[in-house]
Design a binder for these strands. Sequence first.
DNA 1: GTTCTAGAAC
DNA 2: GTTCTAGAAC
Length: 801
Amino acid sequence: MEPMELDRETSKGKEEEGEEGQSIIDKRKPIVVIMVGAPGSGKSTFCDHVILASSQTWIRICQDTIGNGKAGTKAECIKSAANALKEGKNEFIDRCNIDREQRADFLKLGGPDVQKHAVVLDLPAKLCITRSVKRTGHEGNLQGGKAAAVVNRMLQKKELPKLNEGFTRITFCHNEKDVEAAINTYSALGPSDTLPSGCFGQKNPEAKVQLGIMKFLKKVDVPSKDGLAKSNPQSCSHNQTSAEKDSNPKMLENDSAPLEHVQLDVKDCVHQEMGPSSGSIFLDSVPTLAFPSISTADFMFDLDKASDIIVEKVEEFVNKLGGGRLVLVDLSHKSKILSLVRAKAAQKNIDSMKFSTFVGDITRLYSGGGLRCNVIANAANWRLKPGGGGVNAAIFSAAGPDLESATKERAGSLAPGKALVVPLPSTSPLSIKEGIAHVIHVLGPNMNPQRPNCLNNDYVKGCKALREAYSSLFEGFASILSTQGWLSKESNEKSLNSQDQLEKNHSDSDQKVKREALNEYEGSKKSKVFLKELRPDFSHSMDGKDNIENRSNVEPLNECEREINAKGSLKELRPSVSHSIGRIDNLSSRDDTGINKAWGPWAQALYQIAMHPERHINDVREILDDVVVLDDLYPKARKHLLVLARVEGLDCLADVHKEHLPLLRAMHAVGLKWAEKFLDENESLIFRLGYHSEPSLRQLHLHVISQDFDSKHLKNKKHWNSFNTPFFRDSVDVLEEVGKHGKATLRDDDSFHSMELRCHRCRSAHPNIPRLKKHISFCQASFPGLLLENNRLVFGPGKGG
DNA sequence: GTTCTAGAAC
DNA sequence: GTTCTAGAAC
């Protein structure tokens, strides 16, 4: 690299000196070169090179060593620099000087008699980090793991110098060649030589002004092979990129950087490289979502199909994300999903600036891999809880309890195909060490028979769910970008809803946040309802029409529950039941008829009794051909019976059709019979017979319940409201509706369970269950007219009616 | 379905 | 401080 051509004035000055016999001071003002650059950018090395090669006297004012070889203060540097200037020495201010304020005091040195230069080592952040992390024996003891954090923090404050700060000359170096050229320029400087004023090697100045926009445009700079520019500032505006790099776009910038540390998969990273001009800007400023491949690990989703979906979804979203970048992460260089995705993304010409793959630990992207991401995705479980292994366990573990609590605040569960954005508290180690600001939980479909809610190779449903999962994930990311002003207006509008959601979560009161979390939870509860409604679909639907979301609650009923069931959690429920429960076939997804079931393990007891009452002889009151009668294990009144239908496939009222009318009549008749039997014993009792619109226990059962509701087991709103709102369907009405329409009207809206508590007699409202119970213990008001009609209530002889 | 319990409500 | 509820856990 040839040194920069020197200004001819200098020679002229020499001649004048000879003629006029002026002192050496007049030859040229001393130069203060303020070095600007992050740790690891090579400032000290730069100075050392010049000092060694130059014929002039240069001294290096280094804050890291100024205190008798140890780190000193800025004030010491200034003092030392001032003294050196008095002696007419040229000097380097070797400290980071990363922002304007840091530089200001040094620019005041020596007044106008001193030339103020800046040399900006604006090298890729990754390179600086790599160097800092790897170096040993650093003067300032900035090395190893902490260096990465320091470099990063410093680069965030970076403020490139401008002439109007007081510099007469600024040289920008963006790569090793620039650095080499600048070293040569300063080394070659003779006693009377002066370097031209102005900015040299600066990238498009607008890039600084509108960093947010420019950094996402593809290579704004036009590479030039010239190395150092000539005296014309224009010509040296950018000179970093060699033809060699251009010819091999797969190479990461800076061949000299020891990239293996950064764990970048250089060899085969079609999508991994930063463009030659991306440098530190890219790394530091681009909002980046790192995400693992969803469902392909433990959930055993076919890799080929998954990679198709990843690329398809990336392609769909990559342009909606404005400045955002997506990075698919996997642990191993041998990752098949990464290579598949890379190949397919390359085929589709997806912009590698916006999507790349990365080999590394998703919890250590920055500290372990130098990849700066502000958002990571978690392959969550439905419970949104730690554990399970893989990415989920790793992320929860690395994030500490903060993530769990932040998650819990927002939602209690997650449906397949859905994502949940969780702002990560700044106290989380993942935030502190890795700079992660958000975690997006996402749940994908499961193809692993050993895991809950297996789709049994149904890739129609599976692919749909996986597509939805990625859409949800990327939308979540977009919502984060939009709140941070990264998205265009159009994009913002697109993600307005999610933005709203986010903003609420961030700014509103705790109560509101909780309410939203509750809504989400309620939403997932609702999906349970759907699940059951759609259950027939499961038996034969290959049309993929069913709502993926519906499956969310299949999972909870399986993974954990299967084992619980085997251990007989229902033992407590009813000792004699447990024996058979332990052998139950069908808490899993299929029963004998091949119909998928959505019932939890706790929900199977009645079904078992109905199917095999002889095994529960101690628990039942009466066994008939078509019904079984038993006491409710947790009676909500003095008398509370259940009349079970002994028909397979009749799980609840929703399953009831016209052909079941005789059975319903039989159930009603048996219920009445028992009510009358109790009335014989205690004529003050009043009974009501009916069904829950959406029962918790499997197998159609008729409640026969006395209206005293005098029971220690009646404990909460749900208990009360399930018997005292339209959620409770009177048997007489069900008979009528099924007779007329072939089905009963269901009132399975969740809202019934949270309705205000009203006395079933006088309709007075009460603030809580204890107060209500106290009230009903003495309220003798007559029942509402509606209940008195149509024999909905069953009274003792000579009463009511 | 129930039990347990944290935290809200009082 | 106690009561009560809602949600998690089972």
